[in-house]
Design a protein around this nucleic acid. Sequence first.
DNA 1: CCTCATCATGGTAGCGCTACCACAAAGGCG
DNA 2: CGCCTTTGTGGTAGCGCTACCATGATGAGG
Lengths: 371, 371
Amino acid sequence: MIELGGTAKLSRKRSTRRNGNNAPTIADVARAAQCSPMTVSRVINGEQNVRENTREQVLAAIEKLHYVPNRAARSLAGGSQLRIALLFDNPSASYLSEFLMGALEEASRRDIYLVVQSTETQPNYGELIRRLIEGGIAGFILPPPLCDDQTVLDEISTAGAIAVAVGPGKASGSHGAVLIDEFQAAFDMTSHIIGLGHERIGFIIGNPEQAASEYRLRGYREAMEKAGLTLDDSLVVQGQFTYRSGMVAAEKLLRKAKPPTAIFASNDDMAAATVAMAHRRHLDVPNDITVCGFDDTELASSIWPELTTIRQPIREMTTQAVSMIAKAHKKYRGGRDVKGEQLTLPYKLIRRNSDAGPSLASSFNKAESEK
Amino acid sequence: MIELGGTAKLSRKRSTRRNGNNAPTIADVARAAQCSPMTVSRVINGEQNVRENTREQVLAAIEKLHYVPNRAARSLAGGSQLRIALLFDNPSASYLSEFLMGALEEASRRDIYLVVQSTETQPNYGELIRRLIEGGIAGFILPPPLCDDQTVLDEISTAGAIAVAVGPGKASGSHGAVLIDEFQAAFDMTSHIIGLGHERIGFIIGNPEQAASEYRLRGYREAMEKAGLTLDDSLVVQGQFTYRSGMVAAEKLLRKAKPPTAIFASNDDMAAATVAMAHRRHLDVPNDITVCGFDDTELASSIWPELTTIRQPIREMTTQAVSMIAKAHKKYRGGRDVKGEQLTLPYKLIRRNSDAGPSLASSFNKAESEK
DNA sequence: CCTCATCATGGTAGCGCTACCACAAAGGCG
DNA sequence: CGCCTTTGTGGTAGCGCTACCATGATGAGG
């Protein structure tokens, strides 16, 4: 649940609407807890110097009164409200919505003013960023593919704002990053497929302009090597992360004299396209061919068969990104800096119905195409 | 130098960041316009009793200083902030993200407190709604399928809050609605397909629990009738709005002895599934069969061929829904009411690459299956 | 010419919260 | 056993804005 304001339940005597005007205030809580408003404030803000005993009393009072801090007052008194921009450039919708939810959640929790801005209408990034910073934006959250654009990062950094890349960002000196270990995830997935018994495993590379593509490819490569499998370069084809590119790539792979028995696509869109292409060629997934994706976007579980894929905790990543900016902002207030800070979150291999061991049919297939 | 509050912190000259702490305040404007802060406040709020002359001066000062009122202070002083909840129940991700963007945009413009809440974790709607209202939520925005749930609507209405249905809602006495003319849109799409030369047009119905399904079906039916085409009930099959259901439905249609030459699916997910199924059966889209969808979600343009579909202005719809609640709230402040209010926005038929006239191949197909 | 509405404006007091400082109590150390 | 920190707590002063009342200026009506 995303609450832009905390969990409010109040049932004071009458129709006590929070939007009305008799919600409990910090003073009420203080009275109930027999301490000063300041102490209550400290407890609310999780500050140090409060005796455990006192803290509990305050917490109890808060609970009892169903007190919810007033954000307006908070940010007014707190001096200034942090403003963060969330830039994005034609991301997949499912990715974006997860992304937004996470950002929203945290932004509201911390009473941060979040500006969500698409760069599609404004191709001049520099200009856009400058305008935003002038408008009081102190930090930027950059999902892929923006986080791979060094120009953008530099622009932000130079202007004195904070940038945090989310997702497949490479850590850097000019910005913070929240990410998963893309390499290891791809490595694991490949190993998983190998573990199923496959040996000829195709790989579809993502958009070469996004750093994630390279990490994922490397993960695949190393897993193959480590398993002692021959790395057939003809089984590695270029894609662009789009469905369309996935179809082309998949066709290339499936049309081979000796096609792979499994295909690992660098994202779900391309994996979905691979499934479609396999079907078109009368191959059953997973019985004739295993197909795995990456990202666990909605698509992965909305097509049939549902895709085995890697789940990124997108929402949490964004949440963390917001926190990171907030902390940095609070800490430095001017000499702000999150440069180099990096947070790696765990991913998860989600096994669904698109993978299986190499079947008789595909063995046959293999045998058949071996001239 | 007269400084409000005496303590001059930083020189007010430097980097005027809004996030920092030296943004112009209403007092600055007052000084520049040589009047009192109150007068400025009046101008900002478009109140009556201000001489035209004065107003202009203030406006000029605002312009000059790039003054922007501080939201927090406003809602603090102004007494209360409107709170709206956006409830959703497993919507498609692409739909949701558009939806959120619209709501966010308008909410931040109006300084409305937006609570985004999934009902998935909380299946007891009544309880949830009651809690939210107690927590001070004055209005609810309901996307499908929630807007079709009369229980939910009643619950909200009874509790004295405002409900606005967005999307395929039927107008009602207990809530407002922002929608498109689903019937007409489906009618148009069907007519479009007919215009292409098709006569045997299949239809996949959506989830029967959502009102939209019925409207769309009716649109299809009436367009067929109006064109004087026979309404073959075996060409109308039930779906659920999911990809999976679309595959099943499409298979049913395509397996017929005399399959349709075009299929109109009630949403994009099912249309995409139909395309996949057609491919699986070695039919080319659109040359062998035309497939059209509804909604214009991201999926529509991410698969190949891209789908001809109906575009709903989801984002604007949400924006309007927020406005509607805000206006109603302001107007009645207690005796609030948007009941029956209804706003119909225009939709658009987006033609892409999944439709074409009935081809030779399909004629052949037809001829062949005509025993 | 004075009284009384009417208008345009100013002054004052908070909204609910936190920053900042003050201060008592509780050690740590020579 | 004082001196100096460290800790927990309270008091005060606003953050930027608007509600509300007070004021001076106008002009209408008797």
